[in-house]
Simulated assay, not measured.
Amino acid sequence: MANDIKSPGSSVQVLAPATVANLVCGFDVLGMALQQPQDVMTVRLTEKPGIFIQKDDVYNLPVEPEKNVAGASLLALMEEWKAPVGFEVSIDKRIKPGSGLGSSAASSAGAVVAANHLLGSPFTKEDLVRFAMNGEKVASGVKHADNIAPCIYGGITLIRSIFPLDIVQLTAPPMYVTVVHPQIEVRTSDARQILRKEVQLKAAIKQWGNIAGLVTGFLKNDYDLIGRSLEDVIIEPVRSILIPGFDDVKKRSKDAGALGGGISGSGPSIFMLSKEEYVAKGVEDVMIDVYTRLGIEFKTYVTMINYEGAKCIIS
């Protein structure tokens, strides 16, 4: 099964990056990994079989494996590993749950990346995505991979299909990513509940064109096409009502030179893509101004695309 399984007591530390799902028009099919922020996870191989989650976060996350996103992902991995095995998991949670920055995906992906390393890397990245999707089901009720795939593969990923799983890694030109996280919570499950069950054909056609244009823009290094394609006529008009200041941030960011952007995942975080760093920092100034005026606490990041994905840094 594995050539280099670690001995009981061995541990590994993993950096698991935040992710931006959807990329405006690509609901549930496009995702991007960020250099910042990142969770820091430590996973130890134990002599006693089972999953043991340390209670060391401030978010009161459950420690029962089946109720914890990292635990559910590890349970799926252990089911395919078959031999008795145990893992102790500790998470330094730097991606706030409910932020829209793939917090549950980071925990799910980081756990299986660490476990795979400790077991001698018997599983492929696609296997790890399958396992980690079980964590997303715990978090939102749905097995989606638009955060999981970029967290594990790095860069920008296209989920062509979930069943069967078909992940396509995309190239893209250098871009800066500016993110604002208003300190309010939008639950993924709630953000899904308000979506329309049906869409008009003309809206679907426009959305397909934008998705195709965005992917083509990435592959051709065409910044103008990327900017023109960052438009969502189906999801964003509904979800944006949950995010105070959204319309103001988007308009002023584009006026400041951003290529475009929108809601990160289900929100409340908002992301904007820029070609140059000085523009990205100008966009950050816009975001700071909007939320300072609204009197809402916030956190901002000026970062870039993370092409490595979740990675082991100590073993």
Rank of each mutant, 00 (worst) to 15 (best):
S90I: 00
K125R: 13
G209Y: 02
R196D: 13
P65I: 11
G9C: 06
R252M: 14
V179S: 04
G31N: 02
G26M: 10
F87Q: 09
E136L: 10
K206H: 03
D28I: 06
N68G: 06
L259D: 03
Q36G: 04
D28K: 12
M41S: 08
I156Q: 09
Q35S: 15
G86E: 10
I95L: 09
G31R: 01
E126C: 01
V138H: 07
L45M: 10
F131R: 04
G50N: 02
V233N: 13
Q200V: 13
K48V: 09
D146F: 07
E79C: 12
V113L: 09
K82Y: 05
T157A: 08
D224E: 14
A33K: 11
G26C: 08
G120H: 07
I296D: 01
V199G: 10
G309W: 02
P268R: 13
S229C: 05
N116H: 10
D232I: 05
I51E: 02
L165E: 08
I226E: 07
N60S: 13
L128D: 00
L214M: 09
G135H: 09
F163S: 15
F271I: 02
V233W: 05
Y301N: 05
K311D: 02
G110S: 05
L75M: 15
A310V: 01
E277T: 03
W208L: 13
K275L: 12
D127F: 06
P182R: 12
M287L: 12
Q36R: 14
P8Y: 11
L225G: 03
Q35P: 10
K143D: 00
S7C: 09
V180K: 02
E277H: 09
D39M: 11
A106C: 06
N116F: 01
D248E: 15
L242P: 03
S103G: 11
E88S: 10
G257A: 14
L74Y: 04
I51W: 02
L165F: 07
Q193V: 11
R187K: 15
V69S: 13
M133W: 05
D224F: 12
I205A: 13
S161L: 06
V29E: 05
L225A: 06
L119N: 02
M1Q: 08
F163W: 12
P174M: 12
R94A: 08
C312A: 14
I53A: 00
V180D: 01
V63P: 04
I95D: 04
V249P: 02
Q183L: 15
S269Y: 03
C25F: 01
D146G: 08
E276N: 12
A83C: 07
S266Q: 04
P49L: 01
V186E: 02
H181V: 03
H117S: 11
A105V: 01
G261K: 09
Q183H: 14
V179C: 02
G26L: 09
I95S: 08
